[in-house]
């Protein structure tokens, strides 16, 4: 197992955001976490990333307990995240944004090689390497966010709503990229509102409702499950 989450409880003040969430992410698998707005998907990602501190429960990555570690340590252990809303550094150039992704110790030595790889993956970024990131289009910013994450040499990449606000053609491209990264050996955790697409892509999937896991199984299975079809696919 790459990532094992056990009975995770997260509170914002008195409000419970996650309740006894347990999940397993096998190495080199794509695991989708689906659910409605406010179900706790982003909270889960942020807790795994070390940005939120859980009240109880445990998170283990490759056998090591990482519960409550600071986010920069978790990054350096090989868990990367592409956060919701394409968080790039707007006044930095494309190249500088990528360089920022390789500041953690595990990534520094390989930064140059990884950057060529990122530019190969996203030729559009190479064309715009000197341009301020804030002036890129939404799709380009999403590519930059993914590229910057790759610069950190992550084994596990968590995507939080990568298709949010993108045109359909770009959504296809983002999912194609995720598949490519998976084929290149990355483990992927994918949080999406776009349930149909992410279940098709995923090996395994979990359904989150009101901060609880209410269903889990193979992606294909859930895709054909009547309850999922009614609740999330409107069928």
């Amino acid at each position: 197992m790459s990532l094992v989450v056990e009975r995770l409880d997260l509170y914002y003040g008195d409000a419970q955001a996650l309740s006894e969430v347990s999940l397993e992410v096998g190495a080199r698998r794509i695991v989708a976490i689906v659910g409605a707005n406010g179900a706790g998907k982003s909270s889960l990602i942020r807790t795994i990333a070390g940005i939120e501190k859980p009240r109880s429960g445990s998170i283990r990555f490759k056998g090591q307990d990482i519960t409550g570690l600071e986010s920069y340590r978790i990054c350096d252990l090989g868990i990367g995240q592409v956060a919701e809303g394409r968080q790039v550094f707007p006044s930095m150039s494309v190249q500088e944004n990528l360089e920022m992704g390789a500041m953690i110790p595990r990534a520094r030595a390989k930064a140059r090689a990884t950057m060529s790889r990122v530019y190969e993956l996203f030729p559009r970024l190479a064309e715009r390497r000197g341009q301020a990131a804030g002036t890129l289009s939404g799709g380009e910013q999403q590519m930059l966010a993914i590229g910057r994450c790759l610069m950190g040499q992550p084994e596990l990449i968590m995507f939080d709503e990568p298709s949010l606000g993108l045109a359909p053609a770009l959504v296809q491209e983002v999912f194609r990229t995720i598949r490519l990264l998976h084929e290149a050996g990355h483990t992927v955790v994918l949080v999406e509102q776009n349930v149909a697409v992410s279940l098709k892509l995923a090996d395994d999937a979990y359904v989150l409702e009101n901060g609880r896991i209410v269903m889990s199984g193979r992606g294909e299975e859930l895709l054909h499950d009547d309850r999922v079809r009614q609740a999330y696919l409107g069928l």
Binding site: A49, S71, Y72, C75, F89, M92, E99, M100, M103, M151
Partner: peptide
């Protein structure tokens, strides 16, 4: 200086790339 700039522009993103923001 670049860490500071990153924190100033987007603290969440700075955290996401593994900067010890604190």
């Amino acid at each position: 200086g670049f860490y500071w700039l990153a924190i100033r522009e987007d603290q969440e993103a700075a955290q996401a790339v593994g900067i010890d923001v604190f």
